[in-house]
Amino acid sequence: MSEDFSAWIGRSEELFDRIDAARCNALLSALGQPSGLAEGSEMPLLHHWLHFWNVQPPAGLGPDGHPAKGGFLPPVPLPRRMWAGGRLRFEKPLLIGERVTKLSTIKSVTAKSGKSGDLVFVTVEHRLSGESGLAIVEEQDLVYKGETPPGALKTPAAEGPVPSAPWQASVMPDTVLLFRYSALTMNGHRIHYDLPYAMDEEAYPALVVHGPLQATLLADLAVKSLGKPLATFDFRGQVPAFAGTRLDVCGEPAEGGAAFWTEQSGGKNMVATVTTV
Protein backbone atom coordinates (compact mmCIF):
# COMPACT_ATOMS: atom_id res chain seq x y z
CA MET A 1 0.00 0.00 0.00
CA SER A 2 1.48 3.32 -1.11
CA GLU A 3 -0.45 5.73 1.13
CA ASP A 4 1.55 7.36 3.92
CA PHE A 5 -0.42 7.80 7.13
CA SER A 6 2.50 8.85 9.33
CA ALA A 7 0.97 12.32 9.72
CA TRP A 8 -1.79 10.77 11.84
CA ILE A 9 0.63 9.37 14.42
CA GLY A 10 0.46 11.47 17.56
CA ARG A 11 -2.98 12.92 16.83
CA SER A 12 -5.11 13.22 19.94
CA GLU A 13 -8.67 13.97 20.92
CA GLU A 14 -10.27 14.48 24.30
CA LEU A 15 -13.79 13.38 25.19
CA PHE A 16 -15.89 13.66 28.33
CA ASP A 17 -18.68 11.50 29.72
CA ARG A 18 -20.34 10.49 32.97
CA ILE A 19 -20.46 6.82 34.00
CA ASP A 20 -24.15 6.06 33.67
CA ALA A 21 -25.93 3.59 35.95
CA ALA A 22 -28.69 2.94 33.40
CA ARG A 23 -26.25 1.78 30.69
CA CYS A 24 -24.30 -0.47 33.04
CA ASN A 25 -27.43 -1.99 34.55
CA ALA A 26 -28.91 -2.53 31.09
CA LEU A 27 -25.89 -4.58 30.00
CA LEU A 28 -25.95 -6.62 33.19
CA SER A 29 -29.64 -7.35 32.64
CA ALA A 30 -29.04 -8.24 28.97
CA LEU A 31 -26.46 -10.80 30.14
CA GLY A 32 -28.83 -12.25 32.75
CA GLN A 33 -26.77 -10.92 35.66
CA PRO A 34 -27.93 -9.07 38.78
CA SER A 35 -28.22 -5.34 38.19
CA GLY A 36 -29.11 -2.54 40.58
CA LEU A 37 -25.88 -0.52 40.44
CA ALA A 38 -26.33 2.90 42.03
CA GLU A 39 -24.38 6.14 42.29
CA GLY A 40 -21.02 5.47 43.89
CA SER A 41 -20.90 1.76 42.97
CA GLU A 42 -17.82 0.52 41.14
CA MET A 43 -18.30 0.35 37.40
CA PRO A 44 -17.98 -3.26 36.14
CA LEU A 45 -14.80 -3.82 34.14
CA LEU A 46 -14.93 -2.78 30.48
CA HIS A 47 -18.26 -0.99 30.89
CA HIS A 48 -16.46 2.19 29.90
CA TRP A 49 -17.04 0.89 26.35
CA LEU A 50 -20.72 1.73 26.88
CA HIS A 51 -19.73 5.39 27.07
CA PHE A 52 -18.08 8.08 24.91
CA TRP A 53 -20.48 7.46 22.02
CA ASN A 54 -19.43 8.67 18.57
CA VAL A 55 -22.85 9.50 17.17
CA GLN A 56 -22.74 10.79 13.60
CA PRO A 57 -25.55 12.10 11.40
CA PRO A 58 -26.51 9.90 8.43
CA ALA A 59 -24.16 11.84 6.14
CA GLY A 60 -21.29 11.01 8.49
CA LEU A 61 -21.65 7.22 8.20
CA GLY A 62 -19.91 4.79 5.89
CA PRO A 63 -21.76 2.03 4.03
CA ASP A 64 -20.92 -0.44 6.84
CA GLY A 65 -22.71 1.69 9.45
CA HIS A 66 -19.50 2.83 11.13
CA PRO A 67 -18.63 6.53 11.23
CA ALA A 68 -17.10 7.45 7.85
CA LYS A 69 -13.34 7.15 7.59
CA GLY A 70 -11.20 10.19 8.21
CA GLY A 71 -11.39 12.65 11.06
CA PHE A 72 -9.48 11.40 14.08
CA LEU A 73 -8.61 8.02 12.54
CA PRO A 74 -6.68 7.87 9.24
CA PRO A 75 -8.74 7.43 6.04
CA VAL A 76 -7.42 3.95 5.24
CA PRO A 77 -8.94 2.97 1.85
CA LEU A 78 -9.35 -0.74 2.67
CA PRO A 79 -13.07 -1.56 3.01
CA ARG A 80 -13.13 -3.85 6.08
CA ARG A 81 -12.25 -2.69 9.58
CA MET A 82 -12.45 -4.41 12.92
CA TRP A 83 -11.26 -4.23 16.50
CA ALA A 84 -8.63 -6.97 16.64
CA GLY A 85 -7.63 -6.79 20.32
CA GLY A 86 -6.12 -4.65 23.01
CA ARG A 87 -4.33 -4.27 26.29
CA LEU A 88 -5.67 -2.64 29.45
CA ARG A 89 -4.08 -1.62 32.72
CA PHE A 90 -6.41 -0.82 35.61
CA GLU A 91 -5.05 1.83 37.97
CA LYS A 92 -8.16 2.40 40.08
CA PRO A 93 -11.91 1.77 39.80
CA LEU A 94 -14.26 4.15 38.08
CA LEU A 95 -17.49 4.84 39.95
CA ILE A 96 -21.06 5.10 38.75
CA GLY A 97 -21.88 8.79 38.43
CA GLU A 98 -18.24 9.81 38.08
CA ARG A 99 -17.29 12.29 35.36
CA VAL A 100 -14.52 10.84 33.20
CA THR A 101 -12.11 12.27 30.66
CA LYS A 102 -10.81 10.09 27.82
CA LEU A 103 -7.64 11.24 26.07
CA SER A 104 -7.07 9.23 22.88
CA THR A 105 -3.82 9.28 20.90
CA ILE A 106 -2.84 7.42 17.73
CA LYS A 107 0.36 5.56 18.62
CA SER A 108 1.15 3.77 15.35
CA VAL A 109 -0.07 3.07 11.81
CA THR A 110 1.53 0.05 10.15
CA ALA A 111 0.85 -1.36 6.67
CA LYS A 112 1.58 -4.99 5.88
CA SER A 113 1.03 -7.37 2.97
CA GLY A 114 0.63 -11.12 3.24
CA LYS A 115 -1.32 -14.12 2.01
CA SER A 116 -4.57 -12.40 2.95
CA GLY A 117 -3.66 -9.24 1.02
CA ASP A 118 -3.02 -5.71 2.26
CA LEU A 119 -3.55 -4.95 5.94
CA VAL A 120 -3.23 -1.74 7.93
CA PHE A 121 -2.93 -1.86 11.72
CA VAL A 122 -3.77 1.22 13.78
CA THR A 123 -3.00 1.31 17.51
CA VAL A 124 -4.79 3.90 19.62
CA GLU A 125 -4.03 4.62 23.27
CA HIS A 126 -6.87 5.74 25.55
CA ARG A 127 -6.19 7.21 28.99
CA LEU A 128 -9.32 7.44 31.13
CA SER A 129 -9.18 9.67 34.18
CA GLY A 130 -11.89 10.03 36.79
CA GLU A 131 -12.31 12.62 39.49
CA SER A 132 -9.46 11.10 41.52
CA GLY A 133 -7.00 10.70 38.67
CA LEU A 134 -5.91 8.15 36.06
CA ALA A 135 -8.06 4.99 36.17
CA ILE A 136 -7.52 3.00 32.95
CA VAL A 137 -4.78 2.92 30.33
CA GLU A 138 -5.90 1.06 27.22
CA GLU A 139 -4.39 0.30 23.83
CA GLN A 140 -6.77 -0.74 21.04
CA ASP A 141 -5.56 -2.53 17.92
CA LEU A 142 -7.68 -1.79 14.85
CA VAL A 143 -7.13 -3.66 11.59
CA TYR A 144 -8.21 -2.64 8.10
CA LYS A 145 -8.33 -5.30 5.40
CA GLY A 146 -9.62 -6.02 1.91
CA GLU A 147 -12.71 -7.90 0.80
CA THR A 148 -13.33 -11.35 2.27
CA PRO A 149 -13.87 -13.99 -0.45
CA PRO A 150 -17.29 -15.68 -0.29
CA GLY A 151 -17.14 -18.93 1.65
CA ALA A 152 -13.86 -18.08 3.39
CA LEU A 153 -15.56 -18.12 6.80
CA LYS A 154 -17.61 -21.11 7.89
CA THR A 155 -20.54 -21.26 10.29
CA PRO A 156 -19.56 -23.13 13.49
CA ALA A 157 -20.37 -26.83 13.52
CA ALA A 158 -23.15 -28.17 15.70
CA GLU A 159 -22.65 -27.40 19.36
CA GLY A 160 -20.30 -29.82 21.01
CA PRO A 161 -19.91 -30.83 24.66
CA VAL A 162 -19.27 -28.21 27.33
CA PRO A 163 -15.50 -27.61 27.68
CA SER A 164 -13.64 -29.10 30.63
CA ALA A 165 -11.97 -25.83 31.67
CA PRO A 166 -11.92 -25.28 35.47
CA TRP A 167 -13.66 -21.92 35.11
CA GLN A 168 -16.45 -21.60 32.63
CA ALA A 169 -19.77 -20.08 31.70
CA SER A 170 -21.86 -20.14 28.56
CA VAL A 171 -23.91 -17.58 26.67
CA MET A 172 -26.29 -17.88 23.75
CA PRO A 173 -25.41 -14.92 21.51
CA ASP A 174 -28.78 -14.52 19.86
CA THR A 175 -29.92 -11.60 17.73
CA VAL A 176 -31.52 -9.85 20.71
CA LEU A 177 -28.27 -9.81 22.70
CA LEU A 178 -26.31 -8.56 19.69
CA PHE A 179 -28.89 -5.82 19.08
CA ARG A 180 -28.81 -4.73 22.72
CA TYR A 181 -25.01 -4.57 22.83
CA SER A 182 -24.92 -2.61 19.57
CA ALA A 183 -27.43 -0.15 21.01
CA LEU A 184 -25.67 0.23 24.36
CA THR A 185 -22.33 0.94 22.68
CA MET A 186 -23.87 2.94 19.82
CA ASN A 187 -22.08 0.56 17.45
CA GLY A 188 -23.72 0.87 14.05
CA HIS A 189 -21.58 -1.78 12.33
CA ARG A 190 -24.12 -3.71 10.30
CA ILE A 191 -22.40 -7.11 10.62
CA HIS A 192 -23.92 -7.38 14.12
CA TYR A 193 -27.62 -6.86 13.25
CA ASP A 194 -28.16 -6.73 9.46
CA LEU A 195 -27.97 -10.35 8.24
CA PRO A 196 -28.31 -9.65 4.49
CA TYR A 197 -25.49 -7.10 4.71
CA ALA A 198 -23.28 -9.39 6.81
CA MET A 199 -23.70 -12.26 4.33
CA ASP A 200 -23.91 -10.47 0.97
CA GLU A 201 -21.49 -7.59 1.50
CA GLU A 202 -18.94 -8.91 4.00
CA ALA A 203 -19.21 -12.65 3.25
CA TYR A 204 -19.94 -13.76 6.81
CA PRO A 205 -22.08 -16.90 7.23
CA ALA A 206 -24.11 -15.33 10.07
CA LEU A 207 -24.28 -12.27 12.30
CA VAL A 208 -20.98 -11.60 14.06
CA VAL A 209 -20.64 -11.48 17.85
CA HIS A 210 -18.95 -8.23 18.92
CA GLY A 211 -15.32 -8.58 19.97
CA PRO A 212 -15.78 -6.14 22.88
CA LEU A 213 -18.78 -8.17 24.08
CA GLN A 214 -16.63 -11.30 24.16
CA ALA A 215 -13.90 -9.40 26.00
CA THR A 216 -16.45 -8.19 28.56
CA LEU A 217 -17.60 -11.76 29.18
CA LEU A 218 -13.99 -12.86 29.63
CA ALA A 219 -13.20 -10.06 32.08
CA ASP A 220 -16.35 -10.83 34.06
CA LEU A 221 -15.43 -14.52 34.35
CA ALA A 222 -11.88 -13.55 35.36
CA VAL A 223 -13.10 -11.35 38.21
CA LYS A 224 -15.50 -14.02 39.48
CA SER A 225 -12.97 -16.87 39.16
CA LEU A 226 -9.90 -15.17 40.62
CA GLY A 227 -11.60 -13.28 43.44
CA LYS A 228 -9.15 -10.39 43.14
CA PRO A 229 -9.13 -7.08 41.28
CA LEU A 230 -7.56 -7.32 37.84
CA ALA A 231 -4.34 -5.40 37.21
CA THR A 232 -4.08 -6.08 33.48
CA PHE A 233 -6.25 -7.61 30.76
CA ASP A 234 -4.85 -8.38 27.30
CA PHE A 235 -7.07 -9.85 24.61
CA ARG A 236 -6.90 -10.81 20.95
CA GLY A 237 -9.50 -12.02 18.50
CA GLN A 238 -8.52 -15.11 16.51
CA VAL A 239 -11.62 -16.01 14.49
CA PRO A 240 -15.12 -14.51 14.54
CA ALA A 241 -17.86 -15.91 16.74
CA PHE A 242 -21.33 -16.07 15.24
CA ALA A 243 -24.88 -15.66 16.47
CA GLY A 244 -27.03 -18.71 17.01
CA THR A 245 -24.35 -21.05 18.41
CA ARG A 246 -23.55 -21.41 22.11
CA LEU A 247 -20.50 -19.39 23.12
CA ASP A 248 -18.44 -20.94 25.90
CA VAL A 249 -16.41 -18.62 28.13
CA CYS A 250 -13.49 -20.47 29.71
CA GLY A 251 -10.48 -19.92 31.95
CA GLU A 252 -7.65 -21.65 33.72
CA PRO A 253 -4.61 -20.72 35.84
CA ALA A 254 -1.46 -19.85 33.91
CA GLU A 255 2.07 -18.83 34.77
CA GLY A 256 2.03 -15.27 36.08
CA GLY A 257 -1.75 -15.01 36.08
CA ALA A 258 -4.55 -16.76 34.22
CA ALA A 259 -5.67 -17.47 30.68
CA PHE A 260 -9.22 -17.03 29.40
CA TRP A 261 -10.86 -17.64 26.07
CA THR A 262 -14.17 -17.91 24.25
CA GLU A 263 -14.93 -20.86 22.03
CA GLN A 264 -17.64 -22.19 19.76
CA SER A 265 -17.83 -25.89 18.87
CA GLY A 266 -14.34 -26.51 20.26
CA GLY A 267 -12.50 -23.73 18.43
CA LYS A 268 -11.11 -20.68 20.21
CA ASN A 269 -12.48 -17.32 19.08
CA MET A 270 -10.89 -14.81 21.45
CA VAL A 271 -8.01 -15.36 23.87
CA ALA A 272 -7.01 -13.25 26.86
CA THR A 273 -4.43 -13.18 29.65
CA VAL A 274 -4.90 -11.44 32.97
CA THR A 275 -2.90 -10.54 36.04
CA THR A 276 -4.29 -9.54 39.41
CA VAL A 277 -3.37 -6.88 41.92
Rank of each mutant, 00 (worst) to 15 (best):
Q168K: 15
P149V: 07
M172N: 15
E138H: 02
S164P: 04
R127V: 12
T175P: 08
E131A: 14
D141S: 10
G151H: 07
G160L: 02
F121I: 08
A157S: 15
W167T: 05
A169K: 13
L178D: 01
S132H: 13
P173A: 02
S164H: 09
P149E: 11
V162D: 07
G160W: 00
E139Y: 12
V122A: 07
Q140W: 03
G146C: 04
S129Y: 02
V137N: 06
A183W: 06
A158C: 01
F121G: 08
F179P: 01
Q168N: 15
S170Y: 05
P163Y: 05
S170E: 15
P163N: 06
S164K: 14
G160F: 00
E139N: 14
W167C: 00
G151D: 14
S132R: 07
A165L: 00
L177N: 15
G130A: 05
A169E: 13
S170D: 15
V137D: 07
D174I: 00
V122Y: 14
M172P: 06
E138T: 00
V124C: 00
G130D: 02
V176G: 07
G130K: 06
Y144K: 04
K154Y: 06
E147V: 09
P156A: 09
T123S: 10
K154G: 06
R127S: 12
Y181P: 05
F121R: 08
S132W: 06
A152F: 03
P161I: 11
P156V: 01
P150M: 01
P150G: 00
P163M: 12
D141G: 12
K145D: 00
L119R: 07
G146Y: 02
V122I: 15
D174K: 02
L177M: 06
L134E: 15
S170Q: 14
T123H: 07
S182K: 14
P156R: 04
V122Q: 03
G160D: 01
G130H: 07
S132D: 11
H126S: 11
T155M: 13
R180A: 11
P173I: 12
G130P: 02
E159H: 10
E159R: 10
T155Y: 12
V162T: 13
L177D: 15
W167N: 04
Y181S: 13
E147Y: 04
T123C: 09
L178I: 09
I136N: 09
L128C: 03
A135Q: 05
G151F: 09
V143N: 03
M172R: 12
H126I: 07
V162H: 09
E159N: 10
E159A: 11
Y144H: 15
D174H: 08
P150Q: 02
S129I: 07
G130R: 03
E159M: 04
